[in-house]
Design a protein around this nucleic acid. Structure first.
Lengths: 248, 248
DNA sequence: CGCAGAATTGATACATCTCAAGCTGGGTGG
DNA sequence: CCACCCAGCTTGAGATGTATCAATTCTGCG
């Protein structure tokens, strides 16, 4: 099935749903016009690969809609997810020609792409882009370090609770909902993808989700729809302080 | 003992040992002069804390000499190292006022610091600094993602081998030595610090080091001095491709 | 309907943690 | 100079959490 999601693509940057969070967030009207001229959209259907580690990569881009994963694979097949790409997240590294990770579309995906050369050129000319990219990269680094704590020191139950609380609070941000009280959302990942994210097996993921359900920390409706009756309780299960992390 | 390492401090940036790798690497003579005027040195002796997570942080800086660690701690005391800071590495985040991690000097340490406000000012004025900081942050992000694979999917033995190979190759870079053939270096970390880095207990670290020694992968002289007779062998034990990672 | 991918659940194996005892080497005070 | 001490490290034995292997069950879909 060829993606008809292309019809979704905004005609110009002003209408773009990620206009104020993506790498172009700080650009002014002039700069946006330039970007508008060199951008192009690419669509991927769920399960499709965007790029393989080691492949030549002549573009960079932003996720406009949908979800993708960044994973590393060892020779014997063990895999670790190292990034979860949501709308507005940036893919690719200026100054590098080869992809360092596998990028796979988890859901249907639309990306806003730029060929690398013109983009790098624009980066040197318009500091706003480089500034925003630096800020986004620093945020990603913080997220990666948070995950290092999860991977290195948390139990399986805490890992699951951590992942759920991240997905939950991200949804809360997107939907402007209140962060306390009941929260409902859909899991964007399969059990196996969660396992790859958390450094677990899919069986352990399944068991711990069942345990959290049994203990009333979450309520499941089908396999994917999750209700969190008490977010603070979930945070406790994740081993985090209830007062949240340090925000800029 | 008050650090006499201050005597080490270079008078001006031109003489600085990290001149070509730190955040100032791309600065021209003019820019360097400006930095020269606002920089100041701080020294720490081994074991001393540079800053605590949550503390107000009114400076940023580079490690000039020595080694420091970046760690996260959970309420119940579990700790995970999330960064190992070597000469030229950058500490602090422009645009943030509070430290997100504990920073501790592992050896005697000299840092080249800038008060945050003037540094941020310079960042907006001199793109060379922001460009270099972006590059360094992207490198750190790659390193963090590499560590996520280590933490999430590698066995204790592979974790130790990974850490040793990283320290070994870093030393090789510094000393311009050949990357194959025999390598000798000192471990900069205690067993406990290695455990915090790898998400293990110090007992497991000790056992795995003993095992690698028994199997001839490494030779120990005392507790700290390590000889690697065959670097490719070490890489195999680490579970990495022998052909190295993707370099820009 | 029946198939295939996704998820659950069970039984067992095993890697790492935990608790505990001893070792080593360098520094200190008597 | 020696005895002591202490942090860092090693090693052992047993406990435990997660992986592994295997059998069902669910769910959506052609």
């Amino acid at each position: 099935m060829l993606p008809d999601t292309l019809t979704f693509a905004p005609r110009n940057c002003g209408d773009c749903p990620i206009r104020h969070r993506a790498v172009c967030a700080r650009c002014d009207a002039d700069e946006l016009t330039k970007l508008d001229q060199i951008k192009y959209y690419r669509s991927f259907s769920a399960g499709q690969s965007v790029i393989w580690s080691g492949d030549n990569m002549d573009f960079v881009g932003s996720v406009v809609s949908g979800i993708a994963t960044l994973t590393q694979t060892m020779e014997d097949g063990r895999t670790q997810m190292v990034g979860l790409l949501l709308p507005s997240d940036f893919v690719g590294r200026p100054g590098r020609n080869q992809a360092a990770y596998d990028v796979v579309a988890v859901s249907d995906l639309v990306m806003c792409c730029f060929r690398k050369a013109p983009f790098e050129q624009m980066m040197t000319e318009t500091p706003h882009i480089a500034q925003r990219l630096l800020q986004m990269t620093l945020d990603e680094l913080d997220a990666a370090r948070e995950w290092m704590l999860v991977l290195g020191r948390k139990t399986a139950r805490e890992k699951i609770a951590s992942l759920l609380s991240i997905i939950a609070s991200r949804n809360a941000t997107l939907e402007m909902a209140t962060a306390s009280g009941e929260m409902v959302f859909d899991l964007p990942l399969t059990r196996e993808a969660m396992a790859d994210y958390l450094g677990l097996t899919l069986e352990t993921v399944s068991r711990q989700i069942s345990a959290l359900k049994r203990d009333g920390v979450i309520v499941l409706e089908g396999k994917r729809r999750v209700t969190v009756p008490d977010f603070d309780r979930l945070m406790e299960e994740a081993g985090d302080d209830s007062d949240g992390g340090i925000l800029s």
